[in-house]
Amino acid sequence: KTVHVNGVQYDFDNPEQAERFAKEMAKKAGLQIQFHGDQIKIE
């Protein structure tokens, strides 16, 4: 899974790890999470 945070890309082999990371980042920055198939976007 790939997580995009403000244009920066983070790759994870483990989907659960990717989602946990995305939730942490979104919570910290007060941003929205969008799921697009294999990609998670935080903007």
Rank of each mutant, 00 (worst) to 15 (best):
Q32F: 06
Y10K: 00
Q9V: 13
I40E: 06
K23D: 04
K23T: 10
A18L: 04
R20D: 06
T2F: 04
G37S: 07
I42K: 04
K41M: 13
I33E: 03
A29S: 10
Q9D: 03
K27C: 15
F35V: 09
I40Q: 05
E16W: 12
N6W: 12
E24R: 10
E43F: 14
Q17F: 04
R20F: 10
K28R: 11
N6V: 02
V5A: 02
E43Q: 09
N14E: 06
E43I: 12
H4Q: 07
K41W: 15
T2L: 05
E24V: 05
V5N: 01
N6E: 04
V8N: 03
Q17L: 09
G37R: 05
V3H: 02
F35A: 06
M25R: 01
K23Y: 14
E24A: 12
E16M: 08
A22C: 14
K27D: 11
D11F: 15
I40S: 04
V5I: 12
Q39T: 13
A29Q: 12
K27M: 13
Q39H: 11
T2Q: 06
Y10E: 00
F21K: 00
G7Y: 02
Q17Y: 03
G30C: 15
K23M: 12
H4N: 08
E19P: 00
E19L: 15
N6I: 02
I42H: 06
K28G: 04
D38W: 10
I40L: 08
Q17D: 13
V8L: 06
E24D: 05
G7A: 02
M25W: 12
G7D: 01
E19Q: 12
D38F: 13
G37P: 07
F21T: 00
K23I: 13
I42D: 06
G30P: 01
R20N: 09
T2G: 02
N6P: 01
P15Y: 13
D38P: 07
F35E: 05
D13E: 11
I33F: 05
D13I: 07
Y10Q: 00
I33R: 02
D38I: 08
V3D: 01
A18Y: 04
A22N: 01
V8Q: 06
T2A: 03
H4M: 14
E43Y: 14
F35P: 04
E43S: 09
T2I: 08
K27T: 12
N6A: 07
R20I: 11
K27V: 09
F12Y: 01
K1S: 11
H36G: 08
K28Q: 12
Y10T: 00
Y10R: 01
E43T: 11
K28E: 08
E43V: 13
E24K: 09
F12Q: 00
V8A: 04
H4E: 06
K23E: 08
E19M: 15
D38C: 14
K23H: 09
M25G: 00
D38M: 09
P15Q: 11
Q34H: 11
A26D: 02
I42V: 11
Q32I: 13
H36V: 13
H36N: 12
R20A: 13
T2S: 09
E16D: 08
D38K: 03
G37V: 05
K27R: 11
A26W: 04
A29Y: 15
E43G: 10
A22M: 09
P15K: 11
R20G: 03
N6M: 10
V5G: 01
E24P: 00
Q34I: 14
R20L: 12
L31T: 07
A29I: 11
E24G: 02
K41F: 15
K28T: 09
E43C: 15
Q32N: 10
E24I: 10
F12H: 00
E43P: 08
A29C: 15
R20S: 10
N14D: 13
A22G: 00
E16K: 05
A22T: 02
R20E: 11
N14H: 04
F12V: 01
D38T: 10
H4F: 15
K23G: 03
H4R: 09
K41N: 09
E16N: 04
A29M: 15
G30V: 03
A22P: 00
H36F: 13
I33V: 10
E43R: 06
Q9Y: 06
H36Q: 11
V3A: 03
K1R: 13
L31I: 07
Q39V: 13
V3F: 05
E43K: 06
A29N: 11
E19Y: 15
Y10A: 00
V5Q: 01
G30Q: 07
A26H: 01
V5C: 15
A26M: 07
M25K: 01
D13T: 05
F35W: 14
E24H: 09
I33D: 03
H4P: 01
V5L: 10
V8T: 05
A22W: 10
Y10H: 02
H4T: 12
D13C: 15
H4Y: 15
E16R: 07
Q17K: 04
H4A: 05
E43H: 08
A26V: 03
K28A: 12
K41S: 10
V5P: 01
L31F: 11
F12W: 01
T2Y: 06
Q34L: 11
D38V: 08
E19N: 08
G37H: 07
A18S: 01
A18W: 08
K1Q: 06
Q39L: 12
V8S: 03
D11H: 14
L31W: 12
I33P: 04
N6Q: 05
K28P: 04
F21N: 00
Q9E: 04
F12E: 01
D13W: 02
F21Q: 00
N14I: 03
G7T: 02
Q17V: 05
G7E: 01
Q32G: 06
K1F: 15
A22V: 08
I42F: 07
Q9A: 11
G7N: 02
D13R: 02
P15M: 10
T2K: 04
E16Y: 10
A22D: 00
Q39Y: 12
V3M: 03
K41T: 13
K41G: 08
K28C: 15
K28H: 10
K1Y: 15
Q39M: 12
Q9L: 10
G7Q: 02
K27A: 13
V5T: 01
D38Y: 07
A22R: 09
A18N: 00
D11Y: 15
Q32K: 11
Q9W: 08
E16T: 05
A29E: 11
D11C: 15
G30M: 07
A22H: 01
I40A: 04
Y10S: 00
R20K: 11
L31A: 11
Q34E: 10
V3Q: 02
F21C: 05
A29D: 08
V3K: 01
H36E: 11
K28L: 13
E16I: 08
E16H: 06
N14M: 03
A26G: 03
F12N: 00
F21S: 00
G30N: 08
F12P: 00
G7F: 03
K1V: 14
Q32Y: 05
V3G: 01
D11E: 11
G37L: 05
F35T: 07
D11A: 12
K41A: 09
E16G: 05
F35Y: 13
I42R: 02
L31Q: 05
F35H: 08
G37F: 07
Q32A: 10
Q32M: 10
F21I: 01
I42S: 06
F21M: 01
M25A: 06
G7W: 03
N14C: 15
F35G: 05
M25D: 00
E19K: 11
D11W: 15
D38H: 08
A22Y: 09
N14L: 07
Q39A: 11
Q17G: 02
D11R: 14
A18V: 02
E16S: 07
T2D: 01
D11N: 13
V8P: 00
F12S: 00
F21P: 00
P15L: 11
Q34C: 15
Q17M: 09
T2W: 04
N6H: 08
V5D: 00
I42L: 13
K28V: 12
G7K: 02
L31K: 03
E24N: 06
E19F: 15
N6C: 15
M25P: 00
G37A: 06
Q34G: 06
N14R: 04
P15E: 12
K28F: 12
D38G: 07
L31P: 01
D38Q: 09
V3N: 02
Q32V: 13
G37I: 06
I42N: 05
D11Q: 13
I33C: 14
V3L: 06
K1W: 15
D11T: 14
I42E: 05
N14T: 14
D13H: 02
E24T: 07
I40M: 07
N6R: 05
F21W: 10
I33Q: 03
K41L: 14
Q39R: 08
A22F: 10
I40H: 04
K23R: 14
H4C: 15
Q39S: 12
H36C: 15
Q9K: 12
V8H: 05
K28S: 08
F12G: 01
Q9S: 09
Q17I: 06
Q39K: 09
V8G: 01
Q34D: 07
K28D: 05
V8I: 10
Q34K: 11
Y10P: 00
G37M: 05
H36Y: 12
K41Y: 15
H4K: 06
I33L: 08
D11L: 13
N6S: 03
F12I: 02
E24W: 14
